[in-house]
Write a protein that binds this DNA or RNA. Structure first.
Lengths: 326, 326
DNA sequence: CTGAAAGCGCTTACAG
DNA sequence: CTGAAAGCGCTTACAG
């Protein structure tokens, strides 16, 4: 196994010290044009690839981002969203030369992020589906290197899809297409970011002089089925069901299909996320987009930039995708 | 930011040298019971957590597993399988203290794994959806630290679900339930591991004196729709469609639903993977299981064990899940 | 702008 | 079984 080429080799060939080579290769400080040229060329000639491990150890910057996921155990397997998010985060981080490590946190775990304050191997943390309790456990030392895909705190900025706006658009659309008995499957009650969607829906309904009808669920399609059943049992007059995720909506479709209820004729159905399966469900699901990759990539950049202070909150637009279920 | 506790602190408190502390903490070599006790206790008292970075750099063992995925660009977003596999690999690796890094390889990329031979930051590599060409590009130096979820080579062992066996069970089942015009949507032609399913299906059909009817596809549900359309156009008498993935099968269901074709009455449909959406499709999809997590976890262990020489091939069982589509 | 030197936190021959 | 020492491949004050 041939030895790999180190910065030492590059420096020697460039006729500089290791320090200077490091400066140009890491893009820091100022170096003379001549030195920069020689080092750059030497690195290219040698096919030099920096050892990320050594770099992370020496600089103390760490080499991985912790992905903190609040979640009842099996959620990763049950909804496309988190798998998609983890995959996107992994790719964005890897592209920047750092890794990720996933930490699944049961709801209510005591102080599950405390160790991060002193862990020199981590660049920062990205929270998914977070709760206010988890947010409190983020060490102050991580300010500027922690972001939440979901609700934020005074230390942790929130980077998320504008699901409140999406809820508004969806409710408006259902009203505009003649529905008056619009019910909602609202996701887990413990998940604060779904509360934005529930609030927006309730506000629109109130302004329309219509009653808000919400039922809670988890993330699974099965839970969507159950939610739809509860909705129909409680309010048989329901003529539209809006579920906060496509996975839930697919469950709704499944129940209505089983009962022979016409969609969208008798009951219109709308989801949220625009997952690939939405397009081929039967009938194809009307939904709203969720730019997971953009959001996660932005979060990774923010963490890696590591600016002092809390970054600003950022909301990404969602837009309706009209198909046949509504 | 309080300094984190290092092995130096542990050694001092235990009254041993750093070397001895390292030996007990890393579980290597032999140490006296007394030393072991003192070090263990000191580590516990101090809440010592090894710095994985330093460990990886010093030992030369690397701290990440490369996940090499052969794939036309957007596949990660289109099928649940790879997201599930990447997530599972990330978790299994993290649990062992190493990270992962994802490398998406376009089909036909020239020697895309060559750099791994000298990269001291990687423990090993796991290949997904591999081709024979990619397999050839695995450096010999990685023998024992490379495994393929899919077909293998003389250097790389194959760890996979027994999709040939599954194809046999599925075809048998369709025959046993009275179908004679059984067609298949066979997945991508360039993907050798799907060939096992196609071959098994063909063999069963031949032994039954029935014609094999195969159409190729990619991974997407949309492609499943198209495949079903082609099948019905070519062989209108088709009374059963077996697709090599649930995602494809969901596309088939979508097309049949749109055309008002009764499932399973007129055409039975079977998929493969048993993804969560299979259960709530309409009608719920008959399929066969794919123990992705077990497979990936086994692969990670194998890579991390890093035994000299090529490990043995390993096939994981798949079993039928009967629902309503067949 | 540049170099010599110390240091990041561990592991591992090498002696004993 | 154990310790002193060198080393993994970088970065970064500190002087100059």
């Amino acid at each position: 196994m041939s030895r790999s080429v180190t910065i030492e080799d590059v420096a020697r060939r460039a006729g500089t010290s290791r320090a200077t080579a490091s400066r140009v290769l890491a893009g820091s400080a100022s170096v003379s044009d001549s030195a920069r040229d020689r080092v750059t060329r030497a690195a290219a000639d040698l096919g030099y690839v920096p050892n990320a491990l050594a770099r992370a150890l020496a600089s103390g910057r760490g080499d991985r981002i912790v992905l903190g996921i609040v979640s009842p155990q099996p959620v990763l397997a049950v909804d496309l969203y988190l798998g998609r998010a983890v995959t996107a985060a992994t790719q964005a981080a890897n592209a920047a030369g750092v890794g990720v490590s996933v930490r699944v946190l049961p709801i209510g775990a005591p102080d599950p992020l405390a160790d991060l304050a002193t862990d020199r191997t981590v660049c920062g943390v990205i929270l998914f589906n977070t709760t206010y309790a988890l947010l409190k456990s983020v060490p102050r030392a991580l300010t500027g290197r922690a972001v939440s895909i979901g609700v934020g705190s005074d230390i942790v900025p929130s980077v998320d899809v504008d699901n409140g706006g999406a809820a508004r658009k969806i409710t408006d659309y259902l009203y505009a297409t003649g529905h008056r008995e619009i019910a909602m499957i609202g996701g887990p009650e413990w998940m604060p970011c779904t509360a934005r969607a529930r609030r927006a829906y309730s506000e629109v309904m109130a302004s329309l002089g219509l009653p808000a009808r919400i039922v809670y669920s988890d993330f699974s399609a099965t839970s969507g089925r159950e939610g739809a059943a509860r909705l129909l049992a409680t309010w048989p007059e329901t003529d539209a069901i809006y579920a906060v995720s496509d996975t839930l909506a697919l469950g709704v479709l499944s129940l209505l299909g089983e009962r022979g209820i016409d969609v969208p004729g008798a009951v219109a159905v709308v989801g949220f996320d625009d997952i690939p399966y939405a397009e081929v469900g039967w009938p194809p699901l009307t939904t709203a987009t969720h730019p997971v990759e953009s959001i996660v990539e932005y979060a990774v950049q923010t963490v890696l930039a590591g600016r002092p202070g809390r970054a600003e909150d950022r909301l990404f637009d969602s837009h309706l995708v009209l198909r046949r279920s509504a």
